[in-house]
Design a protein around this nucleic acid. Structure first.
Lengths: 183, 183
DNA sequence: CTGATATTTCAGAAATTTCTGAAATTACTG
DNA sequence: CAGTAATTTCAGAAATTTCTGAAATATCAG
């Protein structure tokens, strides 16, 4: 791997973290290289930078595309594919959250609904737990959708408010008779 | 695996999802069995329910304990260890988020800070990206800590407000001169 | 202490995932 | 169309992770 030591360390870290993020080492490294590069890179450049096989790069890029984490670009008079990551980090965060929800939450929600359809089979406790879990996941999904609809600017404002939101909600629930509260 | 078909399906699903959640199949299945069981279970019961080896159960339980996802309990006149999951699903969610942050976010934040300390090494763009990423992760961490400090009741209220929060923040930032806005 | 039960450890086996090089495919150029 | 460059596919190799059975350790009762 031929890069400035600093960048190399960053890339290696992303590789090591890869498995925890649900991607593999190489995919993490490819992403890191693209993330740090001002200009789009083609597969050959990535291959050399990381010292992996060309086919591995191809598969890694395919996976990153499946995650919507990289953009395919073309340069004039060059028929190779070039890849970049979005400039806007918030866009990256949105994509990550959306994709993880799709892979880690949605299938379970579907399954829980299926199981509830099939109805009671002799274990009221288990059935209640499944229902409760389904409700909670639905609630979080709805909240996610609401937040995802906000412009980034609003989202940042909300997050910056942080702890103050606790007080806000209290006021709101007193002022607004339509606000639902649990329990 | 000897359980009601409904529960069995749930357990198998958690097993399959395991890899996406950063745990393995068996660990996912063990958790599922505990989650659905009204009474605490001992290792032997889990082993029979899942048809795996006793040592595998032992290792799986150890991993779940490392994640703080199960509770160890003891029954009178029985020296075996019994395990449960918390009754309160929100407690489970809090644990999950905390542990995932610890494993998936915190090490990267540390690394990014380290890299920034080492300073510029000839690539201003890469350095700017690293700084930007560090700032964003810090902001999200702070927000997480703020939310985590709220009682569950407040958290649920906030989430139920959902889309309304977008409007709220707008009002707040006008009313409160101390509210920071980005950019 | 001795024996019985419960749990953990761990080396190697089994299963799974990742990676490579070669071949196949695609897409463009002249 | 033939030739070339870019990319993808894929079978098997390599690496990694998971699982098991046996042995070791721990814990308790008498």
């Amino acid at each position: 791997m031929k890069m400035a030591p600093l960048l190399q360390e960053f890339v290696l870290h992303f590789g090591e973290m890869g498995s925890r993020w649900g991607i593999n080492r190489t995919v993490g490294q490819i992403y890191a290289v693209l993330f740090l590069s001002k200009t789009p890179l083609n597969a050959e450049e990535i291959t050399t930078a990381l010292g992996i096989s060309r086919s591995n790069t191809s598969m890694g890029l395919k996976e990153l595309q499946a995650w919507n984490l990289v953009r395919l670009r073309h340069l004039p008079d060059d028929r190779r594919d070039y890849f970049t990551t979005p400039d806007d980090l918030w866009e990256i965060v949105r994509t990550l959250v959306a994709e993880r929800k799709k892979r880690e939450i949605d299938p379970t929600l579907t399954k829980l609904r299926e199981l509830e359809m099939q109805g009671a089979q002799g274990d009221p406790y288990a059935e209640a737990r499944i229902a409760e879990l389904r409700e909670l996941i639905e609630m979080m999904s709805t909240f996610y959708e609401d937040m995802n609809r906000l412009e980034t600017e609003r989202l940042v404002q909300l997050m910056t408010l942080g702890a103050k939101l606790g007080g806000l909600v209290e006021k709101t629930s007193r002022l607004n008779p339509f606000t639902r509260t649990k329990g």
